[in-house]
Design a protein around this nucleic acid. Structure first.
Length: 386
DNA sequence: AACAGGGGCAACCGCTTGCCG
DNA sequence: TCGGCAAGCGGTTGCCCCTGT
């Protein structure tokens, strides 16, 4: 039984021959594919339009990246899958040059097994019951194993929670990035001081380093909140916007404008859950210093990352912040209100073509909680094309 | 050398979504 | 508002190749 779209015509099925590929590529290159159902006829192929479309998207497209997945790509898939589940097309959007089919196959053939071998449920990313009991037994953690590390982080916080990380190299019009710190601050702000010990527990943050932040530095808290900066990459002047995720306010905001928000605080209010994709060191420094989030712990995904200096802007570096439920949140933070037990936020240095912020992901996570600021459902207003 | 089994990948199937008249 | 059509998407199938026996 063929496709309903091509049941009337005799179509070939199965593997594509090089000749067919050539015909299709020639035609698409010359004429594009305004209507797939018309493509096979005009290209001289005995295939249905759907088959042509699949062949083009999954195999012939010139911008496809072939070959094995890199470690970074693998991590991205795992991270995004933890949030989105089997939404392969969405996951593939975070991997330039990869198709949903490719990601799906890679997951089924490789990652799934890896996770299982690490004692993780590939569906939920939680520990499998057997592994959970084992870990409760000795609490050993391997810092070089991110998946295991996550799990131990959750356990250490007493939670049956599912932390997640986000890494979103997408083409967003607005990237949320953190401005490079002043040189004298770089070590304190960007180096991870917090190294999990052998039992998988996370050590406290380097208070001395946090205290070294000069008063008035834009990324420190302003009395219980956390500020972060948005840089409009389309703005030649490099307009920056500071936002306070705990207190639900922001300065004149290009983000708000982009989101069609007339006032200057709607976006940040919706972000009351303090979900930020911000440099982990910065975020935690500010948070810890302010004492805002007593349950916050700083994780380390890779020992290597901790020892590396601040990467050049444009690179992609992922850190991780594991945020425990704070006993008290200032300013009506939605994290406590909505029972968000734990967040695990990647930090990404966004350069050109790298979005450090993905609203779609956040929406999927239910992170836009309304924030109690009367801004309504911000996501309904945010029609961003991620 | 022949065969079986498993893994990986390309392609298909069918449902959903979005657009347009 | 409704129906038809095309595209998008996720799950599934089937083929090919590699490896072990």
């Amino acid at each position: 039984m063929g496709h309903h779209c091509c049941s009337k015509q005799k179509v070939k099925r199965g593997l594509w021959s090089p000749e067919e590929d050539e015909k299709l590529v020639k035609y698409i290159t010359a004429h594009g594919h305004s209507c797939w159902s018309a493509v096979p006829k005009h290209a001289g192929l005995q295939r249905c339009g759907k088959s042509c479309r699949l062949r083009w998207i999954n195999y012939l497209r010139p911008d496809l990246k072939r070959g094995t997945f890199s470690e970074q790509e693998e991590r991205t898939i795992i991270d995004v899958h933890r949030i989105l589940g089997n939404r392969w097309a969405q996951i593939a959007k975070h991997l330039p040059g990869r198709t949903d089919n490719e990601v799906k196959n890679f997951w089924n053939s490789c990652i799934k097994k890896k996770l299982i071998s690490q004692g993780l449920d590939p569906k939920t990313h939680n520990l499998l019951p057997a592994s959970r009991s084992l870990l409760h037994g000795n609490g050993a953690a391997n810092p070089s194993n991110p998946a295991q590390f996550h799990s131990n982080g959750a356990i250490a916080n007493g939670g049956a929670t599912t932390p997640f990380t986000i890494s979103s190299p997408t083409k967003a019009a607005y990237d949320i990035v953190t401005a490079p710190p002043p040189p004298e601050m770089a070590p304190a702000m960007y180096e991870y001081d917090d190294v999990p010990n052998s039992a998988g527990m996370l050590m406290g943050h380097d208070q001395a380093a946090a205290a070294a932040i000069p008063p008035g530095y834009p990324y420190t808290d302003n009395g219980g909140g956390v500020l972060m900066s948005f840089r409009d990459q389309n703005n030649a002047a490099g307009l920056q916007t500071s936002m306070d995720f705990m207190n639900g306010s922001s300065s004149s905001s290009s983000m708000d404008h982009a989101a069609g928000m007339p006032n200057g605080n709607g976006f940040s209010q919706s972000m009351g859950a303090a979900f930020v994709d911000v440099t982990a060191g910065m975020w935690t420094t500010a948070a810890v210093e302010s004492g805002m989030c007593a349950g916050m712990e700083v994780g380390q995904q890779q020992q290597q990352q901790q020892q590396q200096p601040l990467p050049p802007h444009g690179g992609l570096v992922q850190g991780e912040v594991v945020v425990g439920r704070p006993p008290v949140l200032n300013g009506g933070g939605a994290a406590a209100d909505k029972g968000m037990d734990m967040m695990d936020v990647s930090s990404v240095y966004g350069g050109a073509g790298v979005a450090a912020f993905d609203l779609e992901l956040m929406e999927s996570c239910g992170l836009f909680c309304g924030g109690g600021g009367g801004a309504g459902n911000a996501m309904e207003q945010l029609q961003w094309d991620c």
